[in-house]
Design a protein around this nucleic acid. Structure first.
Lengths: 221, 221
DNA sequence: ACCTGAACACCGTTCAAGT
DNA sequence: ACCTGAACACCGTTCAAGT
């Protein structure tokens, strides 16, 4: 009965534009999202998009919010032990940003988005549940959230840097090879960890960081 | 005697181009660095820059390397206790990226740069000195480095987001105000920390995160 | 060897004109 | 109300032509 239901089925809408933008971003990366490319996929003119969306920033923000919302609703961390719940949420964000690397660059441009607030609350609630005292709660929460999104963002940046064909272990072997050939007097540490760099798994390393922060939080309980 | 010493004093060079780029980046932000603007500052044509520099990516990488190198050589963390040395290095990076926000976005695009290696080594060496056992060393190091650059980068992104005139505490008050008005059933944690968000100092919060990770590392010593 | 600056192939965004 | 697509004001990068 409303105007909205009377619209043609193929009419443009912000939802359709955002859905097409996500497809484009996933397929071709951040550089692939162009108003011209988007308009051509939607079989319309570039100006039509501006009727529904203020600018490219709003489009990227809406796409990020959509992806993070979908990811959060798929994460099952309900009855678990608070530490396990934090690990589950953290890994969920890591995997989401790994699958959509453009999300990693975007979220630091709009950290106040609704979906982000849900992640923030989920982490904070578990810290509360864990019994972190009032005085330590805010810093414990911000350290975790900063680490989770910082690490996931850096992982996504690595993925974006890499040539599409090559795999991660070859790239790591390259960097580790460089480290092992550094000057022994100036870079003893990097030379020593080079083999571990070559062999490590990014996801395990990320989780080890979450565990280390949880161990630090354990000292103030 | 060499060709190099015979060159005119006002001749272009990569060093001069990088120095001008840093001035431009600091004055007008990442969007202000344009080959046209740079060429006009250097009183030359945009094509001349390409004789000394491959592309914009190399220019940003060189500018970042210059700034981080300068910062690292100013940091005095020599004889200090390893934990204090790590805090000093971390704060030095935080302040550097705070003063040059474009560095925060750049470093994740080129983490293998010489200056970055020096930071990596400096952190790693202190962990070694601290006696972190072999099996925990790599993860402890990567957690610290990831947190330091992730947090500093997010801080810089916040700075870039803000309108040039407004100050940080007004922006925080705004966000905190929003959080305190969230639905009480869905967002109890964010409502509860809103006052702390409004009152906190970014630099102190950053350092509290470093300390929390150091506390976590303490549990594996 | 190094510099000049017009030209090329793109962008995001606007806007008069249409339906 | 919504859509079209040309036009505007930019980009990074290239390259023939100069010195």
């Amino acid at each position: 009965m409303t105007k909205r239901t009377e619209r043609r089925a193929d009419a443009l809408s912000k939802e359709k534009i955002v859905a097409a933008a996500i497809l484009l971003l996933d397929a071709e990366g951040e550089g692939g999202l162009t108003f011209r490319a988007l308009a051509s996929r939607l079989a319309t003119g570039s100006g039509a998009i501006y009727w529904h969306v203020a600018d490219k920033g709003e489009l990227l923000a809406a796409a990020t919010d959509h992806v993070v919302t979908r990811a959060m609703s798929a994460i099952e961390a309900g009855g678990a032990d608070p530490r396990d719940a934090i690990r589950t949420i953290a890994l969920g964000m890591f995997d989401t940003i790994d699958a959509h690397p453009w999300v990693g660059a975007q979220f630091s441009r709009a950290p106040w988005q609704p979906a982000m607030l849900r992640v923030f609350e989920a982490i904070g609630a578990r810290l509360w549940q864990l019994g972190v005292p009032e005085g330590a709660r805010f810093n414990a929460w911000s350290t975790l959230v900063t680490y989770i999104f910082g690490a996931a963002g850096q992982n996504a940046a690595n993925a974006r840097l890499q040539a599409p064909g090559t795999d991660r272990s070859a790239a790591l072997a390259d960097i580790a090879g460089g480290w092992s050939r550094l000057d022994a007097a100036e870079y003893p540490f990097l030379r020593q960890v080079a083999p571990q760099l070559a062999a490590h798994d990014d996801r395990d390393q990320f989780l080890a960081g979450v565990d280390l922060i949880l161990a630090g939080i354990g000292t103030v309980l």
